[in-house]
Every structure is written in structure tokens, then in C-alpha cells.
């Protein structure tokens, strides 16, 4: 039989090896997390580049053609799709992050900044070029069932309607940031809340059919 002393040694060795394996798991997880953060940063950089390109094209058209509106539809769909994709990746990665809470918070703020810049751009196009596109601004709360459900419904709407842009903003992340300005403007006090085409505010969950009907009416 194994002596008591050896049993203790074995327990200690097991504990030591378990800690090593766990540490290795954490290190690998941390490495993967860095990869995820870099991936999101690349996505956001690309978005910024696309937006800048779009603005440059618009300026060029305005100066040389005298009509900035004709470049509208060239990049708009791509920008809108890329923005949605970056948002999805960011949400997905955030739930798997370790030791990177602040990094993800900063990335999210950066992402929401891109969204708001895009929203301003869309508003400008709507006012000046009579934009033939529906725009939905969606305020959600993380880990809230109704918000999640609303997200799925909006996802379904995007798949059904071609000319639509949905921009999602985490209501809880706004304290002291630029998001407050837009939140205060629309007086957002609960989630989910959606703003359809810059002025129609709907509080609470709205079904796919409900959204489609509202878009049609607008």
C-alpha cells in the first residue's frame, strides 16, 4: 500500500500540476484574447477607413460635380453591413474575454463612436439628398432578455429589407461618454427602444411585422 507521506506528496504534485495546466490555459486564453482584440481593432480601423473614403468621395463629388448625392449608394450598403458585422464580432468576443474588461469597453466605445458618426452621416444624407433608406437606432441593455429578443427581430428585418441600416447602442455604457448626447436627445430611459428614421421612437419590444409595418408607413 502507498504510505501516508507519499500520498501527501502525490496530492501536492497533483495540485502543482493542476495549477500549471490551469495557468497554461489562462495564458493561452489570454493570447487568444489578444488575437480577438486585434481582430476587432482591425475591423474598426477598416470601418474608419471606409467612412473616410466615403467622405472623400462625397467631397470630391460636391466640389467637382456639384452633386454629392450620386455617390450615396456606392458605399452605403457596404458600410452598413461592415458595421453590423463588427458589432456582432465585438459582442461575441466580449463574452469570452479574460482580464480584458477595459479593453473591450474601449473597443465598444470606439465602435459606438463609429456608429454615431455613421448615423450623423445618414441624417445628413437624409436631409440633403432625400435618402431612400430606412435607418433604425436600437438602444439595448446587455444581458436583458427583451433586448436580446429585439436584436433577433431587427436581425430578421435586416434580412428581409434591402435598404436598411440598424445601429445598436448599449444604453448602459453611456455614462459620461458621447452616447449621452444622443440618449438625452431622444430621452431614452428604458430598453429596448428603437428610433425609426431619426424621429419615430418606440419603447419596448416590437415584433418583426410591427417594425416592417412602421418602415412601410414612413
Amino acid at each position: 500500500m502507498v504510505k501516508v507521506l507519499r500520498k501527501r506528496t502525490m496530492l501536492l504534485i497533483s495540485l502543482f500540476l493542476s495549477i500549471i495546466v490551469f495557468s497554461a490555459g489562462f495564458l493561452l486564453g489570454y493570447g487568444l484574447d489578444r488575437g480577438r482584440i486585434n481582430d476587432v481593432m482591425n475591423e474598426l480601423d477598416n470601418l474608419e477607413f471606409e467612412r473616410e473614403s466615403y467622405l472623400t468621395e462625397q467631397q470630391f463629388a460636391e466640389l467637382f460635380d456639384g452633386d454629392e448625392c450620386h455617390v450615396i449608394y456606392i458605399r452605403l450598403n457596404q458600410l452598413s453591413g461592415d458595421l453590423a458585422e463588427a458589432g456582432k464580432i465585438l459582442t461575441d468576443y466580449e463574452s469570452r474575454g479574460i482580464f480584458s474588461g477595459d479593453d473591450y469597453k474601449n473597443l465598444k466605445l470606439k465602435y459606438f463612436l463609429s456608429e454615431i458618426k455613421f448615423y450623423i452621416l445618414l441624417k445628413q444624407l437624409n436631409d440633403e439628398c432625400n435618402l431612400d433608406r430606412s435607418v433604425i437606432l436600437f438602444f439595448y441593455d446587455q444581458d436583458q432578455r427583451a433586448s436580446k429578443q429585439q436584436g433577433y427581430a431587427l436581425d430578421a428585418v435586416v434580412r428581409r429589407v434591402q435598404n436598411i441600416t440598424v445601429l445598436s447602442i448599449d444604453r448602459g455604457l453611456s455614462k459620461g461618454s458621447f452616447i449621452d448626447i444622443i440618449k438625452n436627445y431622444y430621452n431614452i430611459t428604458s430598453s429596448p427602444t428603437i428610433i425609426i428614421n431619426f424621429d419615430k421612437k418606440i419603447i419596448g419590444y416590437t415584433s418583426v411585422d410591427g417594425i416592417l409595418e412602421l418602415i412601410d408607413r414612413e
Binding site: V21, F22, A24, G25, G29, L32, D39, D92, R96
Partner: peptide
């Protein structure tokens, strides 16, 4: 509409290694 096959990169980035590795 409800199911999209993930890419290899997505699959790798979805792993939670701190639990999965041990």
C-alpha cells in the same frame, strides 16, 4: 436565415481556453 456556418477564425476565437484547456 437562422444558421450560418462559422469560419475557422470564428471557431478558434469562440474557444474559451481557460476552461477548455484543462
Amino acid at each position: 436565415y437562422s444558421y450560418k456556418l462559422p469560419t475557422l477564425k470564428e471557431l478558434i476565437f469562440k474557444l474559451d481556453l481557460k476552461i477548455l484547456f484543462p
